[in-house]
Design a protein around this nucleic acid. Structure first.
Lengths: 356, 356
DNA sequence: TTTGTAACAGTGTGCGCACACAATTATGGG
DNA sequence: CCCATAATTGTGTGCGCACACTGTTACAAA
């Protein structure tokens, strides 16, 4: 039997210490104008009883308005970041009983100046806390977080993490380990087949995020260790050139007609799947693995053209990230810092139960 | 930009309707002593504005004590139910700002009379809401939930679900689908090997839960459909007879020396793994799949004797189950009813990120 | 008309806390 | 010793709501 024991209130502490609630309040909040004697009396009681305030009553009484902000990469409707952002909104919605506002600033992942510009706007907005979907460039990130720290604005990181930053919380996946995980799966599926295609869909001529690089690194390391005889064949595709992409794929699958397994480290595996479905319907089955259960990938999986997806619950990440910073700022609750989310395998068999 | 728009309070409604807050309060709570005219005026305003109360202020003001109860199977320290129960406690702990108590009643899964006895104690405790870890016997379950419904006590189900019951919420896994999932994984791992061992660890001479039966059913169906030539070899083990178990395993692995793949549908796969590790160290590798990332299984996986685990986040299930019934009872928030948790694959590569 | 009673409506208090403000005490200069 | 001022402490109000209580009105019986 668990009983949340009758909670000690400020009033009780005041009584025990023989002072008024005002004094206890001042001590608890470290406000000035407390005599040494009174402070000692209160402190003694506090030391004994381990006071935990009623966070909800506290927030109710303080009646403050909290302005949260996020700075995230621009994104398409059906994407990791779209889901993560939805999660953030869901978090806001969960706390309609409090006075919150939430503003999202979006930057172009391929344009560092755009990040700095949005960062400036964000700082001008003067939020009480910030959620960051980090930009690739470490120096620019540090510059920004430094500014936040100088202004005493707490921040949380979403998706990728740097050890030298000091966020309130981090929510994201261990990218390298998730690359190893993908390797294990695709090698298992491939069994004795020793050739694997690695599709790289490049946004502006380069990989957008550190996450993708780390996944690939983990993947290559794992394959090298566990199946050194397996050959990895790369195919680079440039998203801004639709026709060129199609040609490249034709050429690739014709030249590498023995390819039966392939993967990609971002959420675009549906591009390959749909290409095969629409343009090479007679090609022998190619087993595909990709990242993120976005709608396009899910559809492609239901059609039978994508076989494995590695999921990371972006919406949960967003929701929990918001929740953590809310708990920290509004309810003054201490938060666990690092939250590496699970590395989840999605297949047609469990797709229905993968919910964001 | 999202702004939680300035919330409309009871006071505002009163003003708009031209009545006092008391009257609004009576209308909102459906209390009596409201004239038709006043009711209409308030109702009109309510219809226009879609009032959502401040749940936290409401709970604070009502200052009620809530007694929750759970009825769960007895369990060992390191088990699915132990984790689920921890999750429930965590839920209680999260709401120390409210006046809650929580009492757990434990019954013997193999003794229906024991369930009925605990159910009686529970009813005598007169809780405001109940969490049920269902007993196998459908008739007994229905009898119990019927009693709860008669007393207007809401209940939630944990782990297994019956469509003809009407719980506030359900948290658990779709057992049949999870069996199919296991089949897919083990068939993929087995590649061209066409023999799979099915280990059944029986507590009191029979399988304890419907979940296990359903998993097996899903598994067999999937194998039959996707790999009809695969042979499934059963091994029954009786937990109460340790020596007999060991003998059975020796005999089994000697007679079926070509077995390379095996699985079990409860959390006891570590028994097989540890047997192989301790007693047949020279036996060729046997790939094992089991359920639940309990400590014994995790250890066995780290030792390299269990390869796959199907997880279901029991602690999350417990926590969320408690949270849902708390939200429903205390904060009067509407709850989504069915929560099928994900079917998760755990391997050494993502084990570190599988957290409860 | 008066009076009793039921139906209805409005006010006040308190949940636990934050914070403004009032009251009290201490300190020091004249 | 007195008074101005600062330092300290205590009290009151309100956050949004629930609920008890008091006050008001209507209406029927006497």
């Amino acid at each position: 039997m668990v009983f949340n024991q009758p909670k000690i209130r400020i009033k009780d502490i005041a009584e025990m210490a023989g002072v008024s609630v005002g004094t206890v309040d001042r001590v608890i909040h470290g406000r000035s104008n407390v005599s040494k004697l009174a402070l000692e009396k209160v402190q003694k009681v506090l030391d004994e009883i381990h006071y935990v305030p009623n966070h909800y009553a506290s927030a109710l009484a303080s009646n403050k308005v909290y302005n949260f902000a996020a700075i995230l990469p621009m994104h398409k409707e059906d994407s990791y970041w779209a889901r993560a952002e939805e999660g953030l909104y869901e978090g806001v919605k969960r706390y309609t009983d409090f006075k919150l506002s939430f503003k999202v600033f979006r930057y172009d992942q391929f344009n560092e100046e755009s990040f700095e510009q949005q960062a400036r706007s964000l700082l001008a907005y003067d939020p009480c806390a910030v959620i960051i979907g980090p930009i690739f460039n470490h120096r620019i990130m540090t510059k920004f977080t430094q500014k936040l720290e100088n202004k005493n604005i707490p921040y949380s990181l979403l998706d990728s993490y740097w050890a030298d930053l000091n966020p309130v919380t981090f929510y994201g996946q261990d990218a390298r380990r998730s690359g190893e995980f993908s390797a294990k799966i695709i090698l298992m599926a491939a069994a004795n087949h020793k050739k694997i295609a690695l599709f790289k869909l490049l946004g502006e001529g380069r990989v957008a995020s550190r996450q993708q690089l780390d996944r690939e690194e983990g993947f290559r390391k794992y394959v090298k260790t566990h199946s050194p005889e397996t050959e990895i064949v790369d195919l680079n595709l440039y998203a801004y050139d639709k026709d060129g992409m199609k040609d490249s794929m034709f050429k690739f699958f014709t030249e590498n007609s023995d390819i039966r397994y392939g993967l990609s480290f971002n959420s675009s595996i549906h591009v390959i799947g749909n290409f095969l479905k629409d343009n090479m319907p007679d090609h022998p089955k190619i087993t595909l693995l990709g990242y993120d259960a976005i709608d396009a990938n899910i559809k492609c999986m239901r059609d039978g053209y994508v076989d494995f997806l590695v999921g990371q619950h972006p919406q949960h990440q967003g929701l929990n990230c918001f929740r953590s910073i809310f708990n920290s700022c509004v309810l003054h609750m201490k938060q666990e810092k690092l939250h590496y989310v699970g590395i989840e395998l999605i297949m047609p068999e469990n797709l229905d139960f993968y919910k964001d």
